[in-house]
Design a protein around this nucleic acid. Structure first.
Lengths: 339, 339
DNA sequence: TTGTAGGCGTTATCAA
DNA sequence: TTGATAACGCCTACAA
């Protein structure tokens, strides 16, 4: 049996109180006592039992993140980089990160959140892929559970989190394509209920409008934000009698799938067909040719989010509750004719 | 405050015992009572508090996996697919998966394992990237913590887990390359303390020997199993005055990096230079050209591991404690001249 | 500066 | 079939 605080106390002929306070760093413990306690605890291999501490403190020192996709989503570099950031920042605060994956807008999703919240599994949540109307935001607010999100629902004014200015980013990307002479530009979208889809589609349409191009419904297709989805969607687009000369994608994974489809058709990406993504994942730099994308510092964003939720868990208010960042347009050869 | 079991009991004028037993599915509760309890609990939004349950049961219903890499390792598809499998199988048993990342063979790694074990954060562990001599295996065994591993240390006979026959896999791959006329075959290895490195290097050398080729130390380089590492290592190899005509890599990520380097040099992969990997990650099928690799069913392997450790956590013995699988050689165009 | 004691929410033992 | 009660290991008023 692992040693408990009692064992340590008994060994030193001290009370459990003193041991507890010595370990937690209270200053009403004699320095000599503290040293002794710490050394003995170390020697005995004592580590406070988490369950007991949680029960007593009503805190778990754990933050939760539920990946809004089925488990294959783990392979998407977007989520990987996001999780890496969360994990690192959690570790800084000696928090653990509890992770699961669950398809969005399903009963299982509700059950999972409920179980973690009601069962006190985590102290707070980080969310992303926020929906235009997102029950999670309402539920967590109502349950008084600290949470931050990447993106936020429409009309929700008091959210805490980070928002990426997808709309203006896409506007800039569209201007770039138009300036390269493209008129038939397709868009591979995601699920229509997603906030980012709404914004990016808006930017796409806005970009067409600014250029005086009438949008063609055939050139807007929906997919699932995976590379497989992007592959399928692009195949469809490239079969069109009057195929697009450029494809903008809701994210990098979709774009990578689209590149695959274009390669397959023998099209020279960047010359015969321009392709662009969004996110600036590491993979996007290693494609062949490198992918033009709207880059955001995903890893850092994730760290910031984890830091924010940690602050909120401690009952404090983060300095900046709402951060808006502008993605950076990285023009690479996938849209830049030299091929 | 969330309702406790007491609230439910009070509401129904029952004892907490009965409520507890009704919910846990004991059969010494009247069917009518159980139904009533279940319905009321549901209505009140009662979910058992995990910390209390853990404290009492001395179990967390959580399995742990510490990714043996710094957090950027999250982006490696190997780990992603592995985590996906663990996560799914854990969910089947209503277990949670606690994840962190930590560079191998560091003090932090020891601290992290210790914290999770001693603090009772998890009931068991899944390990991979096992070292030839691995303190984790010794520590967990000594602490009596259920654990399973992908690969196992040299000479450890009583391990539970799955082992991939890297040695024979590589032998087969080498025979394939030799049959295609390759004589100068390079190997990009990983860290020498890894079990898989030991086995795959063995297979590589064995393959050379069978073909009567004297191994050239210049053609064996070490890297870190990432695509960046593979890229750098391959650049080195391709600068050699007498460069290799084939490169086998310890894993797919390394191979993908190597492909990048070859592309950069304008080499036609599959014709001018053969490249092969190991793992059979999904990405390996989507490279350009598709990558020859030794494939193992990583997702399924991960699920099996999670299932095994779950069984062990329940105090039972898995049917097959030690499973050995043979990777399948998938010959694709990266080693198959047609280009 | 240190010690005593009660309780966090469950489950398990034992008795009714 | 149900109920009273004692832990699980820790933290924290409050007392000394």
């Amino acid at each position: 049996m692992r040693p408990t605080i009692r064992d340590v106390a008994k060994r030193l002929d001290l009370s459990v109180t003193t041991v507890s306070r010595a370990i937690d760093g209270y200053d009403d413990v004699a320095e000599s006592t503290r040293e002794l306690v710490l050394k003995t605890a170390q020697k005995m291999g004592y580590v406070p039992n988490r369950a007991a501490r949680q029960l007593r403190r009503q805190r778990t020192d754990t933050m939760g993140y539920i990946l809004p996709a089925d488990s294959t989503g783990f392979t998407d570099p977007f989520f990987s980089e996001f999780i890496a950031g969360l994990s690192d920042e959690a570790a800084v605060h000696r928090f653990d990160l509890l992770i699961s994956a669950c398809p969005p807008e399903t009963p299982q999703e509700q059950e999972l959140y409920t179980r973690w919240v009601q069962g006190g599994k985590v102290d707070g949540f980080v969310l992303n892929r926020v929906r235009l109307s997102d029950w999670r935001l309402g539920y967590l607010a109502e349950q008084n559970v600290p949470h931050v999100s990447l993106e936020h629902s429409l009309g929700k004014l008091d959210f805490a989190g980070i928002e990426v200015d997808s709309f203006n980013g896409f506007l800039e990307l569209m201007a770039h394509l138009v300036s390269r002479g493209h008129r038939r530009i397709a868009y591979i979208a995601g699920a229509p209920y997603l906030k980012i889809d709404h914004d990016r589609l808006g930017g796409y349409l806005g970009g067409l409008k600014s250029a005086g191009i009438v949008s063609d419904p055939d050139l807007i297709v929906r997919s699932d934000m995976t590379s497989e989805g992007g592959y399928g969607a692009a195949r469809g687009l490239l079969k069109l009698p009057n195929r697009p000369t450029a494809i903008v994608c809701i994210n990098d994974s979709t774009a990578i799938g689209a590149m695959h489809a274009a390669n397959e058709q023998g099209l020279a990406i960047g010359r015969d067909l321009a392709i662009a993504g969004f996110d600036g994942t590491r993979d996007a730099a290693h494609t062949h040719p490198p992918l033009t994308t709207l880059s955001m510092p995903l890893y850092i964003v994730a760290r910031q989010l984890a830091d924010m939720v940690h602050t909120m868990i401690l009952g404090e208010t983060p300095k900046n509750k709402q951060i808006k960042i502008r993605p950076e347009l990285l023009i690479r050869s996938s849209t830049d004719g030299t091929g």
